[in-house]
């Protein structure tokens, strides 16, 4: 059976959830071979094996943290060459983070392959894997495949379920020689984002977002309280971020994060196209807005026309009471 390379997104050995989702999709196309790079790469193996990785190729070097993107492209290219030499390679899958897409694109160009980004589903096809994408602010769904080379596909978080599928997960050291371009862009400083204790926005099952109607940074406390009662991530519309009420890292929409949770709760968000682009594929959508004419209500499964300062705290209390 052909092998599928899965690029592992991890923090010091802790594998992030989108990578485990990739393993679910990879198993539809071939035998997953994971590639883990940088500090803690070796520590990823047990988790990856539990979720279907037949092999785990690892390489630790300081270059991965000290220079932008290119060292990872060099390593992934080495993995492609090593797997291709030993057998056949069906595809390369990479999580659709900003960095993941850059790595995937440069790899695709180097190995003479087409690239598909931001897939939301993947299935095996007669002429190679077929990727589903959601385009034009999720108003269209396309199915595409790669017509040249080994398919390189990036996949968005929440595109597949994490499944237990124990496999060998044999660790092999990957041999990487860095190109002379690897050290072109130096990372001279890194400040890790402070943890809020809430789930990652793109990975969360529930997202509670606030917009213009929240009307002030201090008022986001009521959005956060609702999110915490539900174990949800907090999002914000561009209007709220541009006003300086909430950090850009939490922005949902075209120029922020694109989310696809089980439940999306929009509070005080009108639902402009820029916002819809980032949340329209959510499974269940709920909105609270004063304006009955707000376009967000065209998308909702359940909407409340009312003042969010009344409805949101009442909902939070009710959720807490029901959860006991």
């Amino acid at each position: 059976m052909a092998e599928v390379l899965v690029y592992v997104d991890h923090v010091d050995g802790a594998v992030r959830k989108p990578t485990l989702e990739l393993l679910t999709l990879a198993r539809r196309v071939g035998e997953p071979v994971a590639v883990a790079l940088g500090n803690g790469a070796g520590d990823t193996a047990a988790t990856l094996a539990e979720h279907g990785a037949v092999k785990v190729l690892t390489h630790e070097a300081s270059e991965y943290a000290d220079y932008l993107v290119v060292p990872k492209v060099d390593a992934l290219q080495a993995a492609v060459e090593s797997v291709s030499a030993a057998g056949s390679l069906a595809a390369v899958l990479v999580p659709s983070s900003a960095e993941g897409k850059e790595i995937a694109a440069r790899l695709a160009l180097r190995i003479g392959s087409g690239i598909i980004t931001d897939a939301v589903d993947l299935e095996a096809g007669d002429e190679g894997p077929v990727a589903t994408q959601s385009v034009f602010a999720a108003s269209y769904t396309t199915k595409s495949r790669i017509s040249k080379g080994t398919p390189v596909i990036t996949v968005k978080p929440n595109s597949a379920a994490v499944e237990a599928a124990p496999a060998a997960g044999a660790v092999e050291a990957l041999t990487v020689s860095f190109s002379d371009k690897a050290t072109g862009t130096k990372v001279t400083g890194r400040t890790p984002r402070e943890s809020t204790g809430r789930p990652e926005l793109t990975e969360a099952a529930i997202v509670v977002s606030g917009g213009r109607g929240v009307n002030g940074a201090e008022n986001f406390a009521i959005i956060e309280a609702l999110a915490d009662s539900l174990g949800a991530a907090v999002g914000a519309s561009r209007a709220a971020v541009d006003a300086g009420w909430y950090p850009h890292t939490n922005q949902v929409g075209q120029t922020g994060k694109s989310v696809s949770p089980q439940l999306y709760i929009a509070s005080g968000i009108s639902g402009a196209i820029q916002h819809r682009a980032g949340m329209q594929t959510s499974k269940t959508i709920v909105a609270i807005n004063k304006d009955a004419e707000a376009p967000i209500f065209e998308l909702v499964d359940y909407g409340v026309v009312g003042d969010l300062f009344d409805v949101v705290p009442a909902l939070t209390e009710e959720v807490k009471a029901r959860k006991g």
Binding site: R145, S147, D301
Partner: peptide, 26 residues
């Protein structure tokens, strides 16, 4: 090097329930 095989307009979401908050919205 990529080929779009099909493009389908996403069906409009079916209209949901909209209620007006009369104190019981939450």
């Amino acid at each position: 090097w990529t080929k779009v095989e099909t493009a389908t307009e996403r069906p409009a979401r079916t209209a949901g329930t909209i209620v007006k908050d009369e104190g019981e919205g939450g």
